[in-house]
Design a binder for these strands. Structure first.
Lengths: 149, 149
DNA sequence: GTAATATAGTTGCATGTGCAACTAAAAGCA
DNA sequence: TGCTTTTAGTTGCACATGCAACTATATTAC
């Protein structure tokens, strides 16, 4: 509410928007062309893959991929229908649902990764050295809501 | 197609995705609550504001905001209906259309900016010094398709 | 000049997304 | 215990988005 945004800060923000849009649009095209998982599906399955027992509560998953609750419900519906996840009732909270990664889901991740990896490199990472990549990580990390403040 | 992506590069990519999602989600909420233009509308109107004569061809505008042609057609439909832009046939190419910013559109930009500015600061810029912001700009600039290679 | 090709923009269709409203269950409180 | 408030997840609805198909115009090749 107080002082104006500096031109440098505004420029950084606009560059973040543009870099993100261009890179993700290009990567989505690459994934589409290779007939592997789209980005949104990959993110959900990967979040489950990283989780203990390959399993997360619906709201945790929604937070992890930055999607609304309803959006995640629908996305998990589709992943379930495709056989990549299943739902399981949560023993300690009878309101809750677990989304669980299936072996088919794991296989889809494995199949997608080489394409995704290659695309991240071409569309994004090739522009930076490892030291620069670490600098980007270190800076952008501060924006995560729960890690700051 | 050749060597594997380094862990540093992958981490930078994941941080970019997360930082972008969290910041834009929070900013969209702020804009919504303040009853001003949403981000996508702001971007289009701002691109026109920056352009000579406040006017761009449809495909230029689509490129500027990284949206598909059809997506832009519909978005300009809505902006037109709201009175923020008008369409004008293009004299030197009879297939073409210009999207032109109206004075009402300019007013909406003016009204939105303080809210947006404040939100960019709170959700993004407050985490960085000006020097750091310049570092982010300098790095991310390389990702723009047309400015590289 | 005319045919073949490419480009600009719009539309039908299928799909993805968030908000608000809803049901069910847990937690707080007396 | 019984009542109120909060939280988890799903659904109805409205709207946004991309792809493919289409029309109209421009460009290229001969």
């Amino acid at each position: 509410m107080s002082k104006a945004l500096s031109p440098d800060a505004l420029k950084a923000w606009r560059r973040l928007l543009t870099a993100h849009s261009r890179a993700t649009a290009a990567i989505e095209r690459d994934l589409e062309r290779a007939n592997v998982l789209p980005l949104g599906w990959y993110d959900v399955l990967y979040a489950l893959y990283e989780a203990p027992d390959n399993c997360l509560r619906m709201h945790e998953l929604a937070d992890a991929v930055v999607l609304s609750r309803s959006g995640l419900t629908r996305l998990v519906d589709r992943l379930d229908k495709a056989g990549y996840v299943t739902r399981a009732p949560c023993p300690e909270d009878r309101r809750g649902q677990h989304a669980v990664l299936t072996s088919k889901g794991k296989a889809a991740l494995k199949q997608t990764w080489p394409v995704y990896e290659n695309s991240i490199r071409e569309q994004f990472a090739r522009h930076f050295s490892d030291a620069e990549a670490r600098r980007i990580s270190g800076l952008l990390e501060r924006v995560f809501g729960d890690a700051s403040g």
